[in-house]
Design a protein around this nucleic acid. Structure first.
Lengths: 257, 257
DNA sequence: GTCGTCATTCCCGTCTCGCGAACGGAGGTT
DNA sequence: AACCTCCGTTCGCGAGACGGGAATGACGAC
């Protein structure tokens, strides 16, 4: 609730919001039975009940012993998501290559609702463990991916995002001053790659390059490594070069739809 | 609409049903703008509009040029689905092994809403192309996975499923006679594996073995190959043995929750 | 048998939601 | 430029859907 991006106006459908609240609870395994959900979410049992019935008839959730879980239809929807994102196959190929070349973790991310969402992740042989996973979201201002995307987004869209973002520090190094952040974006626009120097996760440094398409940005590619291996020289040198090369290959293989 | 499984009674929330109808349309890329959706689904533009707003504020869908697409949050939900299914990691490992041992396609599937849903799929080196994908659904009566599961499901659940299923032929060889199907299930219960002899897809034969858990069935493992390679001898011999062995390994590694 | 817990059902009153129409803005055509 | 068309968006209204609360069932435990 801390961030309030994209607070568009217009009518919302309350029942649908309730349905997704229930879905979230089931998703998180917080509660999975009628009574639990009713307590947890502050609705009457009958309300929860009819919503569960509806979700079940839509084959979104499934009964399992005592309670509900998400149905495999969501896996199917995930397939559709990948199909709807431009050039998913190319991205997978190239990010895989990038990860094996560098040995580190490589990501592809794109902007959604004012945050960066990971589309794909590949682990190199010496990659450090991270908690990121496809579909996961991170702030734009504290990640190399986010900064790379922001720097090359059309000005109006960038403004819209920045207007709605609240700079909450993720680590001591997170940039929280809007002015300093604007300067950072200028640097990125010039050098054509972005750095995350432990701004999102302590001990982790990343480089990212934007993948552009005509006059906008599809997303960005990044490589992340532990501070120990990721000296300034390596980051700004070979890694920056690698992500830019990868980004270019993806751009070239992009089929404009 | 042909099949009407799990038609449970009870109140449904209309708005939520509408929301998912819209989501389905976006999913299928049938229509992605307000007017298109309104025409396609037979609702007023204002109705579609407020639903889209709601789905967008829930970060389920995303604006893209002119129209909407599914958001990457669905990938995140897919991750949760995998976590909620018992022993996903074990299944992946063993199905991978099975595919590489046999060289064919291997699947793990489980029953949901009276159909088989694929949880995971691995391709061997000489695997034929199929259209199956994780999350996809197939009838239980025409697939080896479905039959293997059905044969070992508790009697009441099996009855419930069979009562709601309509045997529509998928190929000329599909079993459509309930009595013959009951006999088939008896055979399967005896031999502890199920065969699909081009009953679901022409040119494709499969063997499946159930993965059991205490007194119920978690799902089933299968191997699928082209008729050319899948002689009776191979199917009932080495392949049947392989799927049973894999099923057993998964059972043994199952952590009872 | 009795109690407790949970899912399910029923009814009621309110406010939501879907509709149709009107508005406004962006292109296109003349 | 003026006009038209095609969108997305907004508004107001009336029907009926939806959420709440309480009663009913179903099931187990003790």
């Amino acid at each position: 609730m801390a961030s309030t991006p994209n607070k568009r106006t217009g009518r919302r459908i309350r029942s649908v919001e309730i349905a997704f609240t229930i879905l979230d609870a089931i998703r998180a395994n917080e509660a999975t039975s009628v009574t639990e959900l009713a307590d947890e979410l502050g609705h009457s049992k009958s309300t929860i009940h009819s919503h569960l019935r509806t979700l079940e008839s839509q084959e979104i959730i499934v009964r399992q012993d005592d309670g509900y879980r998400l149905s495999l239809q969501l896996l199917d929807m995930a397939n559709d998501v990948r199909e709807q994102v431009a050039n998913y196959e190319v991205i997978v190929d190239e990010v895989d290559k990038l990860a094996s070349e560098t040995g580190e973790i490589a990501h592809f991310g794109l902007e959604e609702h004012g945050k960066v969402a990971y589309l794909y992740k590949a682990m190199g042989t010496q990659a450090v463990e991270t908690v990121s996973r496809p579909g996961g979201k991170q702030p734009m201002y504290s990640t190399s991916l986010g900064k790379a995307i922001l720097a090359f987004l059309p000005a109006d869209r960038r403004r819209e995002i920045l207007d709605h973002v609240s700079f909450a520090p993720k680590t001591p190094k997170t940039i929280t001053d809007p002015e300093r952040f604007a300067d950072e974006l200028d640097v990125i626009t010039d050098q054509r790659y972005a750095i995350d120097d432990e701004e999102n996760i302590e001990g982790l440094r990343c480089v990212a390059a934007p993948v552009k398409n005509e006059n906008t940005v599809l997303g960005a590619v990044s490589v992340s490594g532990p501070v120990s291996r990721s000296t300034d020289e390596v980051l700004h040198g070979e890694l920056a070069e690698s992500v830019q090369r990868t980004a270019n290959v993806i751009e070239l293989n992009t089929k404009f739809s």
